[in-house]
Each structure stands twice: as structure tokens, then as C-alpha cells.
Design a protein around this nucleic acid. Structure first.
Length: 332
DNA sequence: CCCATTTGACCCCCT
DNA sequence: CAGGGGGTCAAATGG
């Protein structure tokens, strides 16, 4: 059961989604990317795409029965495209906003850290197994291959690096796990340039759960479409990964141009992606917020700093109230 | 034998 | 300019 919550500067819009198949409550953030170089692990294929989006989220185990909460925030880092955000049954697009605004968002949630998640993560064995399957077995419907693991300074949790096994797919993800196996953070990089595999190789139970998602289910988690079909309501799965911003809509090239022209963070296409990803991750971490609320439904929060009141998510929103929330200078 | 994972080494961006 | 550190490579290992 997921609940998406769009926080929009002053007002808060709610879009509810329920999805029993989501692996765990997550907290995340978005960041768009510029060009990057992709090097295939086995073929050493250098591939360039001109746009690239990241989606990072921090996650915590969902108790076997009681569900916890989650939320992710869209970082307005450098996504400069059509400002589309959708919270619907199976598709989600984050909107791009000028980078200047990012700082405020970061400040807004800068204190929300992974540690908070960890502290609230249940330490039961059931979750451990879930965490194990989360990345290794493509519970998100995609196949991932682990290509590295490293101990990151400042965190005692090892970080694993995965890449999508689909040929030439640039998508990667980083998974950080706590010592007990709980996933504390996942950072997605790139858009899948292919549809979700019909039969995910290693995805058994989870994949079933994913496929069980009815496209007509209006409460499904935001979905990520692969780059070439950004606007399509393609077969979707309810995983955070699919929430990665489909800023590209059509293809990487267009997205890149948008990113550069939008005054956002400019990425040199020649720049190796390694550090870029690092920076993005930093951004994401800065804006990521933990989903540690003990509400029944995991909550997804998308924060934008757009000046317009209408969320360009393809849906119409009617403001039905405004309130000053304690501890928040901005009226809700 | 094939494929995925492990893991130490290397690359290179950032400070 | 150099060192730190994150990201990636690729040989070794395991299933």
C-alpha cells in the first residue's frame, strides 16, 4: 500500500496509491543526469547517452504484517524537461526544475538521513531475506548484475553496484545495506532503454507480485518507463526503480538538450560518469528523507519547488485547503 | 562450461 | 598539484 504525496512548496497535494507488491517502504529522491559514458562490464562497450536520470531512495524493511511508511522526494536538481509528474496507476514522471531551487529542497530535508531509516528499520529475519532478494533478484522486474561492492567511507554499510543486464541498457543502481542485511539506500541511475523483461530471470516471487499488478489498479506505485517509451503507459511495475524519472520521455538526446538549456546542472558529455554519479548521489542523499513514519501505508513524498500551483503531472489538482503546519514555515 | 558474484586494483574526479 | 575516495574493471572464484 503506497501513498504518494506531492509536496509542492506551499501546498501539499495528495495522490494515493496502494501497492502490496512493493518491496519495502522507500524514501527517495530524483536527480537528472546529463551525458555519461557507459562501459559494459564484459564487453567494454562505450556507450553514450545524452541524458540520464537517477532515482535514489532509501528504504527500510517492511514488517511482515504491519506496514511502515515511505516517501520519496523528487529532487529538482537538474531535470529540465516537461515538468511532468504523474502519480497514477503505473507511470510516473518527475519534473525538472532549475537547480537553484534544489538547494532549498535540500535544506528542507537535509536532516533526514539514512540513519533515521536504519534506526527504525525492523530487525527481524524476515526482512533480511527480503533485503537479499531486493537487488539480487530483480524484484523490480529487471535483471541486475552486481559488478562491484565497496565500503564507503562514512558509512559502515557496504555499497553494492548493480547494472542492468539488458544489452546496452545504461541503468545502474547502488544498494547500501546495513550490517544485518537491511537495505538502507538505493540509488538508481539511468533509464532503462528497454521494456521490462517478461520473465525476469531471477525474479520469482517478487516478479509474480509485480506482474500481479493490475494495470487498471489506480493505486499502483509510480512507474518508470524506459527511455524510448517515456510517454507510454507501458507495462509497468510498482517498484521504486520505475519511479526513476523518465525525463527523457523519448530518448536520451532530447533529454540532454533540455537539461542543458534549462539552466540546470550542466553535464559535460565527455565527463566520466563515475564522479557524476557520486555527485548525484550526494544530492540525493541530501534530499532524501526517511520513511520512518509508522503509518499504515508507506508514503511517497514528491517535493517540488515549482512556482506554479498546478502540478504538471498530467493530472488536474484542486486545492481544497491550506494550513500552516507546525514546524514548517510554509503553509500547506 | 557458463554465468553470476567476489574482491583487490585501478581510474579519475573532487577537494 | 596531490591525495582521498567513490566508481569501475576484471581476474578469480563459486554454483
Amino acid at each position: 500500500m503506497w501513498r504518494f504525496e506531492f509536496l509542492k512548496l506551499a501546498y501539499e497535494y495528495h495522490c494515493f496509491a496502494e501497492d502490496e507488491t512493493l518491496p519495502s517502504p522507500t524514501t527517495g529522491s530524483f536527480a537528472a543526469r546529463g551525458a555519461f559514458n557507459w562501459k559494459n562490464n564484459q564487453q567494454n562497450v562505450k556507450q553514450e547517452s545524452k541524458n540520464h536520470s537517477d532515482f535514489s531512495f532509501q528504504t527500510q524493511a517492511r514488517p511482515p504484517i504491519s506496514s511502515s511508511s515511505s516517501m520519496f522526494q523528487s529532487s529538482n536538481t537538474s531535470i529540465q524537461t516537461t515538468q511532468e509528474q504523474a502519480c497514477n496507476n503505473n507511470y510516473f514522471q518527475a519534473q525538472e526544475l532549475p537547480k537553484q531551487e534544489y538547494g532549498s529542497v535540500q535544506t528542507l530535508s537535509s536532516e533526514l538521513t539514512t540513519k533515521t531509516l536504519q534506526s527504525n528499520a525492523p530487525a527481524n529475519g524476515g526482512f533480511h531475506q527480503q533485503a537479499q532478494t531486493l537487488s539480487r533478484k530483480s524484484d523490480d522486474g529487471f535483471n541486475w548484475r552486481k559488478y562491484g561492492q565497496k565500503q564507503v567511507k562514512g558509512s559502515e554499510n557496504p555499497r553494492s553496484y548493480y547494472k542492468c543486464t539488458y544489452p546496452n541498457c545504461p541503468t545502474k543502481k547502488k544498494v547500501e545495506r546495513s550490517l544485518d542485511g537491511q537495505i538502507t539506500e538505493i540509488v538508481y541511475k539511468g533509464n532503462h532503454n528497454h521494456p521490462k523483461p517478461q520473465n525476469p530471470r531471477k525474479s520469482s516471487s517478487n516478479s509474480h507480485a509485480i506482474h500481479a499488478l493490475n494495470p487498471t489498479n489506480t493505486n499502483e506505485i509510480p512507474d518508470q518507463t524506459y527511455a524510448n517509451h517515456g510517454n507510454s503507459q507501458m507495462d509497468s511495475i510498482g517498484t521504486p526503480e520505475h519511479s526513476s524519472i523518465s525525463i527523457g520521455d523519448d530518448d536520451f538526446e532530447q533529454s540532454s538538450q533540455r537539461s542543458k538549456s534549462g539552466g540546470g546542472e550542466e553535464f559535460d558529455e565527455d565527463e566520466p560518469n563515475a564522479k557524476r554519479w557520486k555527485n548525484e548521489a550526494d544530492h540525493n542523499e541530501g534530499i532524501s528523507a526517511p520513511g520512518n513514519r509508522t503509518v499504515r501505508e508507506p508514503r511517497v513524498v514528491v517535493q517540488t519547488t515549482s512556482d506554479i500551483d498546478i502540478l504538471d503531472d498530467g493530472y488536474r489538482w484542486r486545492k481544497y485547503g491550506q494550513k500552516v503546519v507546525k514546524g514548517n514555515p510554509n503553509p500547506r
